[in-house]
Amino acid sequence: MKKKILIVDDELTTCTLLEHFLSTQYDVVTKTSGLQALVWLEQDLPDLIISDIQMTEMNGFDFLKEVRLKGYTKHTPVIMLSGRTESKERIKCYQLGAQDYLMKPFNPEELEEVVKKNLFPIHYSSNW
């Protein structure tokens, strides 16, 4: 059974790119807002969430807070995406409970490695 990844981004181009890169190995669900994603999370549970920070309706910080407050998603790994380079934003993501942070535009190889690291943390390294 494939691992399930939830992608949350209000930019359809980013959703399409992420889905393209990840759908060969994983089941990918995309939502275009944090509010849509929270409604979806009431019915389903992903193995990993990838969320943009700058979104309309609900920004990624608020979405991440809500994810961490829910018992059933409290421990779900979250990777945050942003086009901003300020370390203050990355630090805030980590303080709110994100496991990783990727810059837009992202490198597909880095995306693949960060996703694997979060889905298979114990078995990630092929060389010990």
Score class of each variant (00 low, 15 high):
T24D: 13
P105G: 06
K3I: 12
D62Y: 08
G97W: 00
T16H: 02
N59F: 08
F106C: 01
V115R: 00
W40Q: 10
Y124K: 04
F120D: 06
W128A: 14
E109R: 03
F61C: 06
H75I: 10
T14F: 04
T32D: 12
T13F: 08
S23M: 03
D44H: 13
Y72R: 14
I50V: 07
Q95T: 03
S82C: 05
T56H: 13
M55K: 03
Q95R: 01
S23E: 05
M58K: 07
G34C: 06
C93Q: 01
Q36T: 13
L81E: 12
D52T: 11
I50P: 06
H75F: 12
K70S: 09
K116H: 08
R90H: 08
K117N: 09
V28I: 03
V8S: 05
T32L: 08
S82W: 02
D9Y: 05
L22E: 00
D44L: 13
T32A: 12
Y101G: 04
L119F: 13
I5Y: 02
L45P: 15
L38W: 12
F120Y: 09
N59I: 06
I5G: 03
G83E: 05
L96W: 00
V39R: 14
S51T: 11
E112H: 04
V114E: 06
L119S: 12
Y72V: 15
M103R: 08
S33H: 10
E110A: 05
T56A: 15
T16P: 02
T73M: 09
Q95D: 02
E89H: 09
K4W: 14
K92A: 13
L41E: 12
M103D: 08
N127E: 15
L17G: 01
L35Q: 14
I53L: 09
F63G: 15
D44R: 08
M55W: 04
D9V: 11
V29T: 02
Y94P: 01
T76W: 12
S87R: 08
Q36F: 11
K70G: 14
L81S: 12
D52A: 12
Q36P: 14
I122N: 12
P105K: 02
M103W: 13
V29F: 03
Q54R: 10
T73K: 06
N59E: 09
V67L: 15
V28R: 02
I7R: 00
K3Y: 13
A98M: 01
F63M: 11
C15D: 05
T56D: 12
G71K: 11
Q36L: 10
V67D: 10
